[in-house]
Computed example of a mutant assay.
Amino acid sequence: MPIRVEYSLTKEGRSLLPVVNAMSDWAAKHSPKDLYTGRHFDKVHADDFK
């Protein structure tokens, strides 16, 4: 049986989530649409697909 390990963020780590999300939004918004796909990228570019 493989060993299972779970990780979680500390309170301080969770406080960085808005910053990381903002950076991710910026990267997705400024990336070519054909570079990658995924829920986050599709959400950021939702208006581009209408």
Results as ranks from 00 to 15, higher is better:
residue 1 M to F: 12
residue 1 M to D: 13
residue 2 P to I: 05
residue 2 P to N: 10
residue 3 I to K: 08
residue 3 I to H: 04
residue 3 I to G: 05
residue 5 V to A: 13
residue 5 V to T: 12
residue 6 E to K: 14
residue 7 Y to N: 11
residue 8 S to G: 09
residue 8 S to T: 10
residue 9 L to Q: 07
residue 10 T to C: 07
residue 11 K to R: 15
residue 12 E to A: 14
residue 14 R to A: 12
residue 14 R to T: 11
residue 14 R to L: 15
residue 15 S to M: 09
residue 15 S to I: 01
residue 16 L to W: 12
residue 17 L to A: 09
residue 17 L to V: 13
residue 18 P to H: 06
residue 18 P to R: 08
residue 20 V to D: 02
residue 21 N to P: 02
residue 21 N to F: 11
residue 22 A to N: 02
residue 22 A to Q: 10
residue 24 S to F: 10
residue 24 S to Q: 14
residue 24 S to W: 09
residue 24 S to V: 00
residue 25 D to Q: 02
residue 26 W to C: 02
residue 28 A to D: 11
residue 29 K to D: 09
residue 29 K to Q: 12
residue 29 K to C: 05
residue 30 H to A: 00
residue 31 S to E: 02
residue 31 S to G: 06
residue 32 P to D: 13
residue 35 L to Y: 12
residue 35 L to Q: 11
residue 36 Y to S: 10
residue 36 Y to V: 09
residue 37 T to N: 14
residue 39 R to A: 13
residue 39 R to L: 14
residue 39 R to V: 09
residue 42 D to E: 14
residue 42 D to H: 05
residue 42 D to A: 12
residue 42 D to T: 06
residue 43 K to L: 09
residue 43 K to Q: 08
residue 43 K to I: 04
residue 44 V to A: 04
residue 47 D to G: 06
residue 48 D to K: 02
residue 49 F to V: 04
residue 50 K to L: 11
residue 50 K to Q: 10
residue 50 K to G: 06
